[in-house]
């Protein structure tokens, strides 16, 4: 699903965010991406979602070569990736329903199907009864779950998360990560960037560790 070989990323400022990263994430695999702040976790996720382009190396995501994908194809490429943000980035002037429906509206699905899928996604994260509320009235954990519902509503084969438990307490974090695990059981490839080592230990999944832009540990390759 994600194939990085010898990937470098140098920002215009001259800063080297990634230096020769190699890894391969199989379809339906689930992995944690760890490392200190500034180790390159965010850059790696930005490359996968084409917010940034790699400077050098070979990147293939969902069978698309990221170096060659033309600009106008990027929106369609992103529709196959669900992204969960640390600050969930919901639209506060729209209801929970409208927030979750956004990816379907963007890709132009019909209304009936949209309603059905939004309800399914909200049901999955346990917020079906709050569809008409505005995000501002929800708790932090609930807002994050709305973000997750939005990420999975169009059933993307790949789910990325950037510090999804960053602002949550332990119990809520556990719930959330279990949710990701559940999606993985249903065949979704999941990559979670986090420095919540408690979750990493609790789940015993593959771990990729970055330090200063280099992959210094891969639990599968090193085992």
């Amino acid at each position: 699903m994600i194939h990085f070989s010898n990937v470098f990323k140098r920002y215009e400022s001259g800063y080297d965010a990634l230096r020769g990263v190699n890894f391969h994430l199989e379809r339906e695999e689930m992995a944690f991406l760890t490392g200190h702040s500034g180790a390159g976790k965010s850059t790696l996720l930005k490359l996968i979602t084409l917010i940034e382009r790699p400077s050098r190396g070979h990147c293939v995501v969902n069978s698309k070569n990221l170096l060659k994908l033309p600009r106008w194809r990027i929106p369609y490429f992103r529709r196959d990736i669900g992204f969960v943000f640390q600050d969930h980035r919901l639209l506060f002037d729209r209801t929970v329903f409208d927030n979750v429906a956004l990816p379907l509206v963007v890709s132009g699905g019909n209304y009936k199907e949209t309603v059905r899928r939004v309800h399914a996604a909200l049901d999955k994260v346990g917020l079906l009864n709050k569809e008409k509320m505005y995000p501002i009235t929800l708790s932090g954990g609930e807002q994050q779950r709305v973000g997750i519902a939005r990420a999975v509503v169009n059933k993307p084969p790949l789910l990325l998360a950037d510090e999804p438990t960053g602002n949550l307490d332990e119990a809520l974090s556990d719930e959330l990560i279990d949710l990701f695990q559940d999606f993985n059981h249903h065949g979704v490839t999941v990559l979670i960037a986090t420095h919540d080592l408690r979750q990493v230990r609790r789940l015993d999944r593959r771990v990729l560790q970055l330090a200063q832009g280099q992959l210094i540990y891969d639990s599968i390759a090193d085992a």
Partner: peptide
Amino acid sequence: EIIKLIGGT
């Protein structure tokens, strides 16, 4: 930004 991230053309 969000719409661009979730694949809005």
